[in-house]
Design a protein around this nucleic acid. Structure first.
Lengths: 333, 333
DNA sequence: TTGTATGCGTTATCAC
DNA sequence: GTGATAACGCATACAA
């Protein structure tokens, strides 16, 4: 490896001053055509790359955005974050940013980490995955004018900050419509207890679609925690009613997997019973479960867009992006 | 937010020179007790944190380690990387390092990224997940004396660099022993085609244990690609032989899930047939599949150990760490 | 032990 | 349009 190549090396090589090199990099338009070409050639020939630390010291910008990595999620939905992270890293690289990871035990701990990252590394912005009701983290960041985007709406105050989200209601609506189109009339919904924004949203899509087709959703929904056995219990329960459903729309692949087990327990090859999950996890792919797929790569890219536009000085207040999921039809519906 | 707190602010506040503050931080032992206490109080009172960019410019160290994030894996094993990343980030934070993410289309692209990260961000080290035979990336890094650790052995030359790995053979041996202990004698192995280090290793653990117990493994193993339907086909195939197996050790949870489907297709509630998977993915947890669990958090922590010891000047050549997996017994074996 | 001076590589301000 | 100079915050060699 040769000596370190700095802006001075380039300047010497191109027979100009250091400042001119800097101008070629940061304000090419103010440099004369011929000079610029000569400098650019020198940069290419020497393989010069600007030292990020030095630049950061001058500009206060690190070209770094941070995102929290969650501990192993229970349930089968853990791969969602994985795919989102990949999309984020890829999109960020395209915009000249890098992604830094951090962990946190809880929201308070996360805020402490914000403070640390900001003070030591001059972090440019944060991507938060999901928000609670009255999220302390977003308030902390907003108070200090730290740029951030959330993947997931703040359900209590949708316009409070920039976010990207996937329309869950639209997803369950698509699922319900698919089942109606294939002849089902008694379509059940297995979801989570009321109060979670995401859960209520997914439930709403099902209910709305049922009513729109003149179908009565009464007595056809169940709420439980997000585990496979819980899904199985709910489905078994529903199948034992007087007028049982012939299909299930589920708020997650975990619940759907449980429902599928309940269906199969009723007899071999009950293909007349439909089951649709949510998130299109690898499990769904593995077992042929029809599921609602979130456009995670696109969501990540839009997060980066929002953040970098904000960072690059476009003072456009807050922006919201709602993406449409798509139904991946496999063998269970 | 108050003004930026630098080393000069602290010096003024503690009535000492900037140099003394720097000494308190970097060489506390050479500062007089009372002075040190005063400076430390000032640091705490002002909430001072050293600016990483400035420090980096002087020391050439960024306190950053990089790891590649893979695109969504097909199959159900994607969550392994997720858990490893979390462990890595957590352990790195404890050692004063941060984790930077990057993506790459292939090995060549990854090397280009190494170069970039090194030149622009002064990256301190890399963690590679998995190595190919004659890996170009490790050679590139080694040539330039860039510190790195791989999670996964270089099978062709085990001593060439530092690595952390999980003993796959031990895992399948534990699985096989468990089945033998519960009365099985005809135990099949479903794995991958010969030639992959990981696959051969996992197969070896099964074969070795069979022989050690006087059982003949002949005709009881199948190799295929790592997908659920492939696992199902192999298991169905084995069950149709003259002297069929009563249990299956599988090289992955994907294959095990397929085997489980094949078992269940032979009749309801065949609990006499055992199935054990590998990786203890969320799916295994969800469906009650007995599986071999890799100590991912510990593996990550050891990677950080190896890397930081190397970075902090312990010139201890290369080090290898082989971790023991554990069998998580659930309902399928 | 503590203080003073210098430089790391870059960008911004200003003369030329 | 171009070049000299200062400054960002820190760590180190050296003098006191």
């Amino acid at each position: 490896m040769a000596e370190k190549v700095t802006i001075a090396t380039v300047a010497r090589h191109a027979q100009v001053s250091r400042q001119t090199v800097s101008n070629v990099i940061n304000s090419p338009h103010i440099v004369r055509e011929e000079t610029r070409r000569r400098v650019e050639e020198a940069i290419a020939a020497l393989g010069y790359r600007a030292n990020q630390a030095a630049r950061q010291m001058r500009t206060g910008r690190s070209q770094l955005i941070a995102v929290r990595i969650e501990p192993a999620r229970d349930g089968i939905n853990g791969s969602v974050l994985d795919r989102f992270l990949h999309g984020l890293t890829f999109a960020a690289a395209g915009a000249g940013y890098r992604v830094l990871l951090y962990t946190a035990a809880d929201d308070g701990d996360e805020i402490k980490t914000f403070d640390d990252l900001l003070a030591c590394h001059d972090l440019d912005g944060f991507v938060l995955t999901g928000t609670d009701h009255g999220d302390a983290r977003t308030h902390w960041l907003a108070e200090r004018d730290v740029p951030f985007v959330t993947f997931g709406r703040p359900w209590d105050e949708p316009e409070r900050h920039s976010w990207v989200d996937v329309d869950g209601a639209d997803g369950t609506a698509q699922a319900t419509r698919r089942l109606i189109d294939t002849g089902h009339r008694r379509i059940a919904f297995i979801g989570w207890p009321a109060g979670s924004g995401v859960g209520d949203d997914r439930r709403a899509g099902w209910e709305r679609t049922m009513r729109a087709h003149g179908l009565d959703p009464a007595g056809l929904d169940r709420a439980t925690d997000d585990r496979v056995p819980a899904g199985e219990t709910c489905a078994t329960d529903l199948l034992a009613t007087d007028d049982p459903p012939t299909a299930f729309v589920c708020a997650s692949d975990s619940l759907a997997l449980g429902a599928l087990q309940a269906v199969r327990a009723t007899g071999p090859a009950r293909t007349d019973l439909g089951v649709i999950g949510f998130d299109d996890t690898p499990v769904a792919q593995a077992i042929g479960l029809t599921s609602v797929s979130q456009p995670l790569a696109e969501a990540a890219a839009r997060c980066v867009d929002l953040l970098t536009h904000h960072l690059d000085g476009t003072p456009d207040g807050t922006t919201q992006v709602l993406l449409r999921p798509s139904l991946v039809v496999r063998t269970t519906a």
